[in-house]
Simulated scan of single mutants.
Amino acid sequence: MGNSGVGMLLGDTSVTALWMIFLGTFILGAAILYGVMKSGRLRRSERAQLDQNTEAAQRRDDPQKRPTL
């Protein structure tokens, strides 16, 4: 009666591997979620600098483009 449920169908080694897969998936999902949440936020000064750099790159790449006021 040592094995029951999934252990009886797959064996002890497979059950351990299955739990490791679930655990790894959970940790990977948490890490991805953390990265997505942190990457979407810029401070006001960072956003302004990014906008200035973007406009400068566009003017450099397309000299015909008029500067925005």
Rank of each mutant, 00 (worst) to 15 (best):
M1C: 05
M1P: 04
G2L: 08
G2A: 14
G2K: 11
G2E: 12
G2Q: 01
N3I: 02
S4H: 10
S4F: 06
S4T: 04
G5E: 11
V6I: 13
V6E: 13
V6F: 11
V6Y: 07
V6H: 12
G7R: 09
G7C: 00
M8L: 02
M8R: 08
M8W: 09
M8Q: 01
M8P: 09
M8H: 01
M8S: 03
L9P: 00
L9M: 12
L10C: 02
L10P: 06
G11Y: 05
G11S: 09
D12W: 05
T13P: 02
T13D: 13
T13K: 12
S14H: 10
S14F: 04
S14N: 03
S14M: 00
V15A: 06
T16G: 00
T16N: 13
A17S: 09
W19K: 15
W19T: 14
M20H: 06
I21C: 03
F22W: 07
F22L: 10
F22C: 07
G24E: 07
T25P: 04
T25D: 07
F26K: 10
F26A: 15
F26V: 12
F26E: 09
I27N: 15
L28I: 11
G29M: 08
G29H: 02
G29N: 02
A30Y: 08
A30I: 01
I32D: 00
I32Q: 04
L33V: 10
Y34C: 12
Y34W: 06
G35W: 02
G35C: 02
V36I: 01
M37H: 08
M37T: 00
M37C: 04
K38C: 04
K38R: 02
K38S: 07
S39F: 07
G40I: 03
G40H: 03
R41S: 01
R41Y: 03
L42K: 04
L42N: 06
R43D: 01
R43P: 07
R44E: 01
R44N: 05
S45Y: 08
S45I: 10
S45T: 07
R47H: 00
A48N: 11
A48E: 08
A48M: 01
A48S: 00
Q49P: 03
Q49I: 05
Q49Y: 08
L50Q: 09
L50A: 07
D51M: 09
D51H: 09
Q52S: 15
Q52A: 15
N53I: 04
N53Q: 14
N53S: 14
T54E: 14
T54R: 15
T54F: 13
T54A: 14
T54C: 13
E55I: 12
A56L: 15
A56E: 13
A56Q: 15
A57P: 09
A57H: 14
Q58W: 02
Q58Y: 05
R59Q: 12
R59A: 11
R59V: 07
R60Q: 13
D61H: 08
D62K: 05
D62P: 06
P63F: 00
Q64E: 15
Q64A: 14
Q64W: 10
Q64I: 06
K65P: 05
K65W: 00
K65A: 10
P67Y: 06
P67N: 15
T68W: 04
T68N: 15
L69V: 07
